[in-house]
Computed example of a mutant assay.
Amino acid sequence: MNSSSNAKRLVLLVDDDALLLEFLSEVLGHAGYETTTAASAAEAIRKVEAREPDMALLDITMPGMSGLELARHLHENTAVPFMFLSASGDAESARQAASSGAVGFVVKPVDAARLMAAFESGLARADEIRQLRRTEANLNAALAAGRETSLAVGLLMGRFQADRNTAFEVLRDHARSSRRKINEVADQLLAAEEVLNSLHAGFASRLKSK
């Protein structure tokens, strides 16, 4: 499965088993991913500092700093998503992987088909997390940029029973499609709502007088 869309996606492979690293590199390379390898956590940290990968595949048990400790470092100091390789498929290993923030878990011995299924599932999950973070960052920036946007998002939430992210995304997409700033669209929306409220009051007054 050689995909040009994967060509620029870098995967860091971390394991003290040189033969396994070679196998993982071959399988992922055949699938169109760029790979780089590290035989220890210390080497992995140096490589991440030089260039952050799109995914890290970490052996849980390694001499020196373990894969779990490396995962903790990545989680606290980088935005690199990671998966674990483990010789154990027991519940405790899976629990440790999940609690550390891993997006996937592969049990050794690894075959190509099982590796790619788990890897691409983990990568998809990592992409979802990245998108959520981008949306949240965009939302926070927009809300901080102007009171109008904040009020308009709240208005859309109430009018359409939507959550905050959805309301913001609809407002943002409309602004983009009309090639206008989001604050301008928000201001127009609030002005329209004010007019509608005034008209509603006028209708209510007329109906009451009849």
Rank of each mutant, 00 (worst) to 15 (best):
P53I: 03
R180V: 12
S100G: 08
F105M: 06
P63F: 11
G158H: 09
A144W: 05
M55L: 15
E76R: 15
L74W: 00
R114Q: 13
G67C: 02
A167T: 03
V170E: 13
A87G: 15
V170Q: 14
S177R: 15
S88K: 11
L171Q: 11
N183T: 14
A144G: 10
T78D: 03
A162T: 12
L171I: 10
P63W: 05
A50C: 02
V107M: 03
R164Q: 14
L115W: 09
A112P: 07
A126C: 06
S99E: 14
L74F: 00
M83E: 07
S100V: 01
P109F: 12
E128D: 15
D90T: 05
A113T: 10
L58E: 00
S93V: 00
V170S: 09
M157L: 03
D173L: 14
K108P: 08
A152D: 02
G104S: 09
A87R: 03
V153D: 07
L151I: 02
Q161T: 06
A145E: 15
G146D: 12
M55F: 12
R125F: 05
A102P: 10
A56K: 02
A124C: 04
K47V: 00
E76F: 07
R176N: 08
T166E: 13
M62N: 09
R159C: 01
E120H: 03
I182A: 07
A175K: 10
F160S: 07
L70T: 01
A142M: 02
L57R: 06
E52L: 13
A118H: 12
G122W: 11
M55T: 09
N138C: 11
L57S: 02
A102R: 08
A112S: 14
P63S: 11
S86H: 05
N140G: 07
E52N: 05
E136A: 12
D90V: 05
S178C: 08
E128S: 09
A117T: 13
S178Q: 11
V103D: 07
L115T: 09
A175V: 12
N140M: 11
T61A: 14
R114Y: 08
L115S: 05
A144P: 05
F82A: 03
A152Q: 04
K47M: 13
T149W: 07
R72F: 06
I60G: 00
M65I: 15
F168E: 01
A144T: 13
A145P: 05
Q161G: 04
L155R: 10
N183P: 00
N77Y: 10
L70E: 01
P63V: 07
R176T: 13
L68P: 01
A94F: 09
G146W: 13
N140Q: 15
A141V: 06
A117L: 14
E128Q: 13
A50N: 08
L143S: 03
E169N: 08
R147T: 12
D54L: 01
V106L: 13
S88D: 10
G158E: 13
S88C: 06
R133I: 07
S86G: 04
F160V: 02
A152K: 01
F82W: 05
L123P: 02
A162D: 04
Q96S: 09
L171G: 11
A97I: 07
S88Q: 11
S86Q: 06
A79P: 00
G158Q: 12
A71Q: 05
D90E: 12
S88N: 15
A98Y: 04
V80W: 01
E136P: 00
Q131E: 14
A137V: 10
L85K: 02
L57T: 01
E49R: 14
D59I: 03
R180N: 11
L171E: 11
